[in-house]
Amino acid sequence: MSKILVCIKRVVDYNVRIRVKPDSSGIVTDGVKMSINPFDEIALEEAIRLKERGIANEVIVASIGPTEAQQQLRIGLAMGADRAIHIQHDTSIEPLTAARAFLKIVEQESPLLVITGKQAIDDDNAQTGQMLAALWNRPQACFASKLEINGNIAHATREVDDGLETIELDLPAVITCDLRLNEPRYVKLPEIMKAKKKPLELFMLNEMGITLNQQFKTVKVTPPPARQKGVLVKDAKELVELLKIKGVL
């Protein structure tokens, strides 16, 4: 029977209004609420549903990050994953490094599917899934909004700029999820308690025998330029007049 590996990332919660550090070195994350990257939560939900439909018999949730990333892995277990893999590393890594680390897990577990979010909402890189598929030399379906598995073939519908595209993939393959794929379930308290008993395996990123890609150096992080405060008009007539003055009509 088959396994599904879900890769998740601990990120600043999507409801947090982020602030740039005054010294331009990054984003303030101290004391900020952290969560599973929302797109990765969709990946988890999809994997659990595939298991519930009998398409897989085990869901493994994996994450790279500091010790605190285990909080997110435990939530993944509470949602319904069977076991967790924590690849511990305390500083931020480039997506290629993440893909290399997940490839190690893939080689160990031989999953039928790897599912992850289309991007993490912190760095917005949208790279890790595709990179993993490339290193693994397997198909990829990015931005999936529908997934059907039939034996060793998957049909994935992808959200592309000009509509929807459906592709067929030989499995195993990597799927990256778009928002529309599903709505993740809420985790109930008893499940969180039960999840504490589920196995969590620990690796140290530095001991996995992979090269850490260190190609990019952050020069500075800055807030976006603010837009100038606009004006209020009282009705449609005044709006049209102003647009004409501005030369946009």
Binding site: E94, P95, L96, A99, N125, A126, Q127, T128, G129, Q130, M131, L132, A133, A134, L135, Q140, C142, F143, R158, E159, V160, D161, N213, Q215, F216
Partner: peptide, 18 residues
């Protein structure tokens, strides 16, 4: 969506980041 899908695959095959 075209480039986002394609380029990380290219980068990884080249052994570089993006």
């Amino acid at each position: 969506t075209f480039g986002k899908d394609l380029m990380p695959r290219v980068a990884a095959l080249l052994g570089v980041g993006q």
